[in-house]
Amino acid sequence: MSAHPPQLRVMETPVLGPRELALFQALVEKEAGIHLSAAKDALVANRLSRRLRELGLSSFKAYYAYVTERGHEAEKVRMLDSLCTHETSFFREPQHFDLLRERILPDWAAQGAKGMRPRTLRVWSAACSTGEEPYSLAMCLLEALPPGAGWSVEVLATDLSTWALERTQQGLWDLERSRTIPQPLLKAFMLKGVRSQEGLMKAGPELRAVMRFARVNLNSEGEWPAGPFDIIFCRNVLIYFGAEARKRVIDGMLRRLSPSGYFFLGHAESLIGINADVSSVSANVYTPRARPPATHRTR
Rank of each mutant, 00 (worst) to 15 (best):
L142G: 10
Q183K: 10
M190A: 04
F189E: 06
T180D: 11
T158R: 08
S161P: 10
K202S: 14
E154I: 07
T158G: 00
E206G: 10
R177A: 04
S196G: 07
R177C: 04
R212A: 06
T168W: 00
F213Y: 11
W173N: 09
L141E: 09
V210D: 02
P205T: 15
S152I: 08
E143Q: 13
L218C: 13
A214I: 10
F213H: 11
D159T: 11
G199V: 08
V153C: 13
Q169S: 13
L218R: 05
G199T: 06
L137P: 15
A203T: 14
I181C: 10
L142V: 09
K192S: 13
L175R: 05
V194K: 08
P182E: 04
D159E: 05
S196M: 04
Q170V: 03
P147D: 02
L200P: 14
L218A: 13
L175T: 02
E198Y: 01
M139R: 02
L200N: 14
K202M: 14
L156C: 14
Q170W: 00
Q170N: 05
R167K: 14
P146N: 00
F213C: 05
T162C: 06
L207H: 05
K202F: 07
R179D: 02
M201I: 14
R167Y: 03
L185I: 07
L142N: 04
I181Q: 12
R195M: 03
E206Q: 10
C140Y: 01
L156V: 15
Q170I: 05
A149P: 01
P146S: 02
P184S: 08
W151T: 15
L172F: 10
K187T: 15
S196I: 12
S196K: 09
A149E: 13
L200G: 12
E206C: 04
S178D: 06
E176R: 14
A203E: 10
T180G: 07
R177Q: 07
R212H: 12
Q170L: 11
L141V: 15
A157M: 02
A209K: 13
R215P: 01
E166N: 11
D174S: 12
L145H: 01
V210E: 10
L175Q: 04
M190F: 12
P184G: 07
L141C: 06
Q183F: 00
G150S: 02
M139K: 02
V194N: 10
Q170Y: 00
M190P: 01
T168M: 05
T168N: 08
T158L: 01
G148H: 03
L172V: 15
N217L: 02
V153E: 03
L172I: 13
I181M: 08
Q183T: 15
R167E: 12
V216I: 15
P184M: 04
L165Y: 03
T180Q: 08
L156F: 05
K187L: 03
R167S: 10
S152L: 05
G199E: 04
Q197C: 04
V153Q: 09
P147L: 00
L145T: 01
G193L: 04
R179G: 00
V216Y: 07
A144N: 07
A188G: 09
A164M: 03
L141I: 15
G171N: 11
T162P: 08
C140V: 06
P182R: 07
E206F: 03
L191A: 12
S152Q: 13
W151Y: 07
L160F: 06
S161V: 08
C140K: 06
A157R: 00
